[in-house]
């Protein structure tokens, strides 16, 4: 486990202010562990793409440092960039390129010797065998996405960035993509993906970072994040409707539905006592008859929305 704990990418005090004055990154500190899958969540314009573009060399940092495998991204850019593969958000492919040619081109561009067999394997991993000789512009959006992934993997990078990989992608490709991501991780590749789909992060990430307005609000193991920020709710359906929550229950964090038939109790999973027993007893004493009970746990999505909301209110 020690190997997975040492950071492969280390970011310190990273800021980026664009020429127009827009400050996209406002001081990011982040360690990315070797071999992990890290999901960066955040609303549009949060700075996710700027962050990964900076690490990949497409954007110059205004201040701060980024090291990849101990190499500085500005001073030792040749060392850092050959370790990194990037799948951009936009479906950018040359208009007249043939699939296999463009993948071979990528491999050479990143300094790897031509190896047609290896390129064929990569294409096959992405189910692109039969599209090998097609012109990229004639491919569907999903296929283009696969070609972009193949290009990013052509030089066998140790780190793979996927910028919004499933934007506009159908279910099948999404599943294929996650299988591939799993396979890559097994081979030791570190994967960083940005997304604003929570399910995506919830499904495959080891750790989740939330970015909003150029700041990293939180980063933690997915489970920790869920439990530390997650709230549970107990939903009680009442046998008879009530006009208001009785006085005797005022000490609980309760919410009454508009029709007066349902009470929702929110409690912290980290607390020593959930207070459920006390609540149920108090309800019994208040003479409220129960029809049904339900509990639910907040998803990453709720956590995320809450975080971003609090951040905006600050």
């Amino acid at each position: 486990m020690t190997e997975t704990q040492s950071p492969i990418i280390s970011i310190r005090g990273l800021t980026k202010t664009y020429e127009g004055g827009h400050q996209a990154l406002k001081g990011i500190d982040l360690d990315i562990r070797k071999g992990e899958i890290l999901a960066l969540l955040g609303p549009n314009g949060a700075g996710k793409t700027t962050l990964i573009s900076t690490i990949c060399g497409l954007v110059r940092p205004t201040s701060g440092t980024v090291t990849v495998d101990g190499f500085d991204i500005t001073k030792d850019y040749r060392e850092t960039r050959k370790r990194i593969g990037l799948v951009p958000q936009e479906l950018t492919l040359g208009a007249f390129d043939v699939v296999v040619d463009t993948v071979r081109f990528s491999r050479g561009l990143f300094g790897m010797r031509a190896d047609h067999k290896r390129v064929d394997e990569i294409l096959s991993d992405l189910s692109l065998d039969d599209k090998k000789d097609s012109i990229v512009t004639r491919l569907s959006g999903g296929m283009k996405r696969r070609v972009l992934i193949a290009k990013a993997l052509a030089h066998e990078p140790r780190i793979l960035f996927l910028d919004e990989p499933t934007a506009g992608v159908d279910v099948e490709l999404r599943k294929d993509m996650w299988r591939l991501v799993e396979k890559l991780r097994e081979s030791g590749v570190t994967i960083i993906l940005t997304t604003h789909y929570i399910e995506e992060a919830e499904e495959i990430a080891d750790r989740v970072g939330v970015i909003s307005d150029g700041r990293l609000l939180v980063i933690d193991e997915k489970e920790n994040l869920m439990s530390s920020l997650g709230k549970k709710q107990l939903i009680v359906d009442l046998r008879t409707t009530i006009p208001a929550v009785p006085e005797s229950l005022a000490s609980f964090d309760l919410e009454l539905s508009d029709d007066g038939a349902r009470i929702t109790y929110t409690f912290d999973t980290q607390g020593e006592r959930t207070g459920i027993t006390a609540l149920l007893q108090a309800m019994n004493e208040a003479g409220l008859g129960l029809k049904d009970l339900n509990t639910s746990q907040s998803s990453l999505e709720d956590i995320f929305v809450n975080l971003v909301k609090t951040d905006n209110e600050r």
Binding site: C56, G57, L58, Y77, R78, E79, T80, R81, K82, I84, L86, P88, E90, T92, L93, G94, S106, L109, F110, G111, K151
Partner: peptide, 10 residues
């Protein structure tokens, strides 16, 4: 937009 690849290459 494919120039991104050249710009991110070593």
């Amino acid at each position: 937009g494919t120039v991104y690849e050249v710009m991110s290459a070593p």
